[in-house]
Design a protein around this nucleic acid. Structure first.
Lengths: 344, 344
DNA sequence: TACGGTGACTAAACCGGTTCAGAGACGACG
DNA sequence: CGTCGTCTCTGAACCGGTTTAGTCACCGTA
């Protein structure tokens, strides 16, 4: 017993068989209380820690969960959503003795093949999937692979529990806020329409504006990158009736938007109002500080990890909602500029 | 053979023993060329993929490398360095059939214990360690644990290869740039002094300024967070002779700085010049766009991963340098304001 | 007293690879 | 022809757990 103690060492020291030690350590019935006590004591004394590899081999479990980010590296880099999300998820997983296996798939890498490899190699026991698309092809794939998964945002698919935050509520609050300030021409620089949350947010905005009897928003679709947001902003300004307020899909995109607006001589918020999304750290440090919607990615990550662990533990798959996303009003929104107040 | 084919299935189909299949697949000598060919063909035909778990158990390898980020979650969230770094590292690792095991340790979690657990559980075969401190206690720990590691930035420790980028060169270029613009009172809002690169950058700045016969820089130490950077900026402005240029430790910190400067009625760059660090995506979208130093975290991540894989493959540990960090001049730096030109 | 049932425990198989000692065939050489 | 060495290959042990079939002692019951 030179190296780490194995289960055989514990068995020998306790004077029982390997199998019984395994039973005792895993809280399974059929071990006399006194014996269990003794085995646990011996294991403790020897500093025994079960080998993940040995256990993996027989249980056919990886003791790791996957997070597959299917975006190009530079897109991930620009989005401040993931770091806190990952940190949140990770903190829950360590406590459960699991590991987070992260994959960053560029556009060029075959997503389906990657999932197949992940299960074929038994790298993960389950996955967290984000950037949900309507009729997401991954869902059928995951079902086929029998890979447990939780989704970030609702899919309407009963096979996989969703961890959701009501981001539409955040958009609604944003829209009301802008309406209250007198804005009537409100535009949105959104994420890709093929992403569920992109579409949902655009719809929420449209609904509120329609209810308020205001013309539907101009929605420009982008890939979430700040560069695309900058271009979209240019396009909005070039239109016949440019908006007096723009809602962006994330905070960095909003920062890019502000940058373009200022180049065009527009002061924020006096000349035009700007809203971000996610309330990432950067939102507090743009000039002016961003009015944005808090989605609390850290809490989201932790909740997703917990939901996946529950699922792996065999508990029934139930959706979990983090409640409505909250509007955070800062300095980038203000009253509609003079001359636009009543324009329809 | 209902499920995935195992090595035994390949052996049977090829009419040889398991052991020989293992030899053939691992390119080891002692297999007749014709037999090797046949085994490889059969394996291919059956779609055989060796089980990571089985292999792990006998080789006592995890086929995963670790990245331990010992910062609080919100600090990680604010720093745009890691996402591209991780993406870069990850892309190299998948190609090598390895996995990235990420740990985000808050201040409260015991770092040493975490490393011990990582090796005790054989979660990783090696680690990439960043945020190097002088006389970093982790180095002795890693040596004790016999855990292969590469360091981000030089430690002067021959036991571990370093992957370095000459960030001092970037600081030097920044300093020259500012001197050329006429600045004489240059301040630095740096990272913690206990981090090697924090100290190195401050030293580089000090050296250039001294050589130029200009008063040494005021260096304010922070924890790298934008909030701390904002406070540091306030402090600098409150001084008797406020700087005409401030160099920040990263781009988000610089953004926070700009925000504070503008609140104080200072225009950037006309009233004061600002430099960032890392050239993250956000640097292009602040107002004005940031003059910064490109450290190319993606390339750095890939290089670190490759260096670690080489080390694990038994190749001698050699430092690898990515060359000098390049200054990227944008709009946040300009000529020293009138009235400060020759002030000593 | 014989029998069946139950609870505690053991022994061995098993998961899927790697590794090592040794067997067998074959050619070269003295 | 005998011997040695080399090459190819086999069989079994091994890594460290989990799981299952089965043993054994002991109890209550007829």
């Amino acid at each position: 017993m030179a190296g780490k103690p194995t289960i055989a060492d514990v068995a020998q020291a306790a004077g029982v068989s390997k199998g019984l030690v395994s039973f005792a350590l895993n809280d399974r019935p059929g071990v006399a209380p006194a014996t269990r006590r003794r085995i646990l004591d011996v294991a403790q004394e020897l500093g025994f820690r079960p080998s993940v590899q040995g256990r993996s081999l027989s249980t056919r479990l990886a003791y790791s969960v996957g997070l597959v980010i299917a975006r190009d590296a530079d897109l991930v880099a620009a989005d401040p959503f993931y770091p806190p999300f990952i940190a949140g998820a990770e903190s829950v997983l360590v406590d459960a003795g699991r590991t987070l296996t992260l994959s960053v798939l560029g556009r060029e890498r075959d997503e389906a093949a990657h999932y197949r490899a992940l299960v074929a190699d038994r790298r993960v026991d389950g996955v967290i999937i984000g950037d949900i698309r309507p009729d997401d092809s991954r869902l059928d794939l995951l079902a086929e692979l029998e890979l447990p998964a939780v989704t970030l945002g609702s899919t309407g698919d009963a096979r996989f529990p969703a961890v959701t935050i009501d981001d539409a509520a955040g958009v609604v609050a944003t829209a009301r806020h802008l309406l209250d300030l007198g804005h009537r021409r409100i535009a949105m620089v959104a994420g890709p329409r093929e992403l569920v949350h992109g579409a949902r947010r655009a719809d929420a905005l449209r609904r509120v504006l329609t209810e308020a009897g205001v013309g539907g928003p101009t929605v420009v679709e982008t890939d979430f990158s700040p560069l695309a947001a900058a271009r979209a902003t240019e396009a909005l300004l070039a239109a016949a009736d440019p908006p007096t307020a723009i809602v962006y899909g994330n905070d960095v995109a909003a920062a890019a938007g502000i940058s373009v607006l200022r180049e065009h001589g527009l002061d924020v918020p006096r000349g035009i109002s700007v809203c971000g999304f996610d309330d990432s750290e950067i939102a507090r440090w743009t000039v002016p500080a961003l009015t944005t919607v808090s989605t609390d990615p850290g809490r989201w990550g932790a909740a997703a990890a917990r939901a996946l662990l529950d699922l792996l533990a065999g508990q029934p798959a139930t959706d979990q909602d983090l409640g409505p996303a909250r509007l955070v009003v800062r300095r980038s929104t203000g009253p509609v500029p003079a001359g636009h107040e009543t324009q329809e």
